[in-house]
Computed example of a mutant assay.
Amino acid sequence: MTERHRPTRWWAELLLLGLVYGVYSGGRLLARGDVDLAVEHGLSILRFEHVLGMDFERPLNRLFTEQAWIGVPADFVYASLHYLVTPVVLVWLYRRRPAQYRFARTWLVSSTLLGLIGFTLMPTCPPRLLDAAHGFTDTMAYYSGYGWWGAEASAPRGMGGFTNQYAAMPSLHVGWALWCGVLLWAYGRTPLLKAFGLAYPLVTTVVVMGTANHYFLDAVAGAAVMGAGFLIAQRIGSRSRTRIVSGGWDTSAGELLPKQRPAAEDDSPAAAR
C-alpha cells in the first residue's frame, strides 16, 4: 500500500468507529420509547403488510419454528454474523481497497446514525414480542438451549437490559448486510466473494423475518436507510473534492481526515470500476 493511497492511521479509524458505535448503542437504549406505542406501531405495520399481501413473516416464522434444522442455524446467523461480517469487511477494505475505504466507512456511519433516528421516532415492537394470538414464535427463545442467547433477541443471557428490543424499524441487520453485499460484489476479486456478497443480504432478510425479529417493511426501511446514507456519503465526498481543488488538498470521497495528495483521484464506488 503506497502512502498516496493509505487511509488514516488504523488507531484513528478504530477510535472513530468505536465512538460512532458507542453513540449508536447508547442512543438505542435512550430511544426505548413507550411500549404501548411500540406495539401499536408493530400492529400497524402488520396490518399494512397484510393489505399489500407482503406479510411474509408469519409463514417463514412457522417454518423456522417447525423445522429445527432451519431455525437453529438461522438463530446463529442472526446472533453472530451481524457483529462479525461488517467489521471483517471494514478491515478488508482498509487493507485491500484503501481507495474505497473512506467512502465505505462514511456510508456505513451515515446510515447507522439515520437508523438511530428511525429507532427514536418510531419505536416498533418486533413480531416475536406481540401477543401470542398473532401467531408468532420467538425462535431465539424457543431454541435458546442451542446458543448463548436467552429471551432478549441476540443478547447473551442476563444481558437483555443492555439492549433495546423495540429498535426494529429500520432493520440494520438488513442494512449492514446490504452494505457488506454491495462492497463485496463491487470489489471482490473472486467468484466466491461476489457470491457471498449477493447471498448475504438476501439470507439476512429471510432470517430476520423467519426468527420474528423484524417485519418485511423493517427490511425495506433498512435498505432505504442505506440508500440515503450512500447519497449522504456522496454529498460529503463531493464537498471534500470542492474543498480540495480550492485548498490544494486531496481526499477520497467521504474522507473525514484528509491527507495531502493529488486531486485527480475519485474513490467513490461509482467511480472505481
Rank of each mutant, 00 (worst) to 15 (best):
R28D: 11
R28Q: 14
L29Y: 02
L29K: 00
L29D: 03
L29A: 04
L30D: 06
L30Y: 06
A31G: 03
A31R: 00
A31I: 03
A31W: 02
R32N: 04
R32P: 00
R32E: 13
G33K: 01
D34M: 01
D34P: 00
D34E: 09
V35H: 03
V35M: 02
V35E: 11
V35G: 01
D36I: 01
D36W: 00
L37A: 11
A38F: 03
V39E: 13
V39T: 13
V39K: 07
V39G: 02
V39M: 07
H41M: 06
G42K: 03
G42L: 07
G42W: 06
L43N: 08
L43D: 11
I45H: 05
I45F: 12
L46T: 09
L46E: 14
R47K: 13
F48I: 12
F48K: 05
F48T: 15
E49N: 06
H50Q: 15
V51W: 14
V51H: 12
L52M: 14
L52Q: 11
G53H: 08
M54Q: 08
M54C: 11
M54W: 15
D55V: 10
D55P: 00
F56A: 13
F56I: 13
F56Y: 14
F56W: 15
F56N: 07
E57R: 06
E57Q: 13
E57K: 02
P59M: 11
P59L: 11
P59D: 12
L60Q: 10
L60M: 14
L60C: 10
L60G: 09
N61P: 05
N61I: 13
N61T: 12
R62K: 14
R62V: 15
L63H: 10
L63V: 14
L63C: 11
F64W: 12
T65V: 11
E66R: 14
Q67A: 14
Q67T: 14
Q67E: 15
Q67G: 04
Q67L: 15
A68Y: 09
A68I: 09
A68V: 10
W69K: 05
W69T: 12
W69L: 13
W69P: 02
W69F: 15
W69C: 08
I70S: 09
G71N: 08
G71K: 03
G71P: 04
V72I: 15
P73F: 07
P73E: 09
P73R: 03
P73M: 06
A74Y: 05
D75S: 09
D75K: 00
D75M: 09
F76A: 03
F76V: 04
V77E: 06
Y78D: 05
A79N: 05
A79V: 03
S80Y: 08
S80A: 06
S80Q: 02
L81I: 00
L81K: 01
H82A: 04
H82F: 12
H82L: 06
Y83E: 05
Y83C: 00
Y83W: 08
Y83F: 07
L84Y: 02
